[in-house]
Structures are given as C-alpha cells and as structure tokens.
Simulated scan of single mutants.
Amino acid sequence: MSDAAIPTHKRIAWPAIYALAVLLMGAVLALLVWATPVKDGARDWTAPMVPGGWMAWTFPVALFFWVIAGLLVLFTILAIRFPETPRRGILRIETTRGDRLFISLLGSAFICLGWLFFAGPPLWWGLALCLVHAAAVFRWV
C-alpha cells in the first residue's frame, strides 16, 4: 500500500522520529560530558562524577550505559518501523533482533569478565572479541 492510500492522520513521520531520537540521545551525551569533572582546566574523564557517591559513576561508566540506552532506542524504533518474524539459527531456537541483542550483550559481559581474569585490565582486545561475537550472533543465531 502506498503512502497516498494511507489517511493523512495515520501517516507516521519517521524522519521526525529519527531526528527526535538523535537529538534526545545527543542531549543526554552532552549532559554527561558537561557533568564530567574539570581538573586543572581539562576534563578528568576517570574522576567520579558524584564525589563521595555510593558507586563510581565515571564518564566511561556513564558512557557504557548511554550506549546500552542508545541500542535499546534504536532497536525499539527498528522493531516498530520494520517488524520481523522470528528466525531459527544454529541454536535451533526462534530469535528476533532484540533476542540476538540480548544474547550478544550477555555473551559480551562474560567475554569481558573472562578477559579481565585471564589477561588483565586493558580491554581493547576483549572489546574486539565482543564485536566479533556480536557479529556472529546476529549472523548465525
């Protein structure tokens, strides 16, 4: 059915929804950067954002949760805009995009924990392994 056949009050302005999502996530990111402490005229990216707080809310931790929130917003918009039917992969279970995102995030958490246990703090190669894992999950699971 073409857009011309859909009544005017039922048309969805997808570009406006995309722009609103980008603006909202950009505003939250700008707020996080603004809230990052400044020390000696430069941003101290690893300093606590809430001094004396119960959790080490540093910019990298906040950025991690911002990325997760961005993924959830993106996948929600994709699920509404382009609905999909579940498919079976090598695990022989039906999965949707959201299921595969959850599986890849959960697997990435275990990969990072294992990397920290066996290799130590620099997680860059662990992150690369997580991206390969996520690509494999989205392709074959």
Rank of each mutant, 00 (worst) to 15 (best):
T46L: 15
F59P: 01
F65W: 15
A21Y: 01
W66G: 07
F65G: 04
G41Y: 04
V28F: 11
D40M: 12
L24Q: 06
A47W: 00
M49G: 09
L31R: 04
M49A: 09
V28N: 03
W45R: 09
D40K: 12
A42Y: 07
T46D: 14
A47S: 13
A42N: 08
W34K: 13
A19K: 01
A21E: 02
W54Q: 15
A19N: 00
V61W: 02
W54H: 13
L63Q: 05
G53F: 11
A19L: 13
A35T: 01
L24S: 14
V61R: 08
G52Y: 10
T58Q: 06
W54A: 15
D40E: 14
V33S: 03
Y18S: 04
L32I: 05
T36E: 06
M55F: 15
L29Y: 07
L31D: 05
D44H: 10
L23Y: 02
G53R: 10
K39T: 15
R43N: 04
L20E: 02
A62D: 02
A56T: 04
L24R: 07
D44N: 15
M55E: 10
A30S: 08
P48E: 12
V50T: 12
L31P: 00
W54F: 13
V33I: 15
G26L: 10
G26P: 01
L20C: 10
L20Y: 02
A27P: 00
Y18A: 04
A42P: 00
Y18T: 02
V61E: 04
P60V: 05
T46K: 08
A30R: 05
G41M: 07
L23I: 08
R43Y: 10
P60C: 06
T58D: 00
K39V: 15
L63Y: 11
V61S: 01
L23T: 03
P51T: 03
A19Y: 00
T58R: 11
A19C: 06
V38E: 14
W54V: 14
V50A: 13
T58C: 06
V33Q: 05
G53Q: 11
P51Y: 11
K39L: 14
P37T: 05
L20T: 09
L31E: 04
A30P: 01
A62G: 04
A42M: 08
V38P: 04
W45L: 14
D44Y: 10
P48V: 10
F59Y: 10
G52V: 09
L32F: 04
G41D: 01
A62Q: 12
W34D: 10
F64Y: 09
W45I: 15
W45Q: 09
P48G: 07
M25C: 08
L63W: 06
L23W: 02
L32Y: 00
W45C: 07
M25Q: 13
V28Y: 03
T58K: 06
G52L: 12
G53H: 07
P48A: 15
L29A: 14
L29P: 00
M49L: 12
L23R: 01
P51V: 04
W57D: 03
V50D: 10
G53C: 09
A56Y: 06
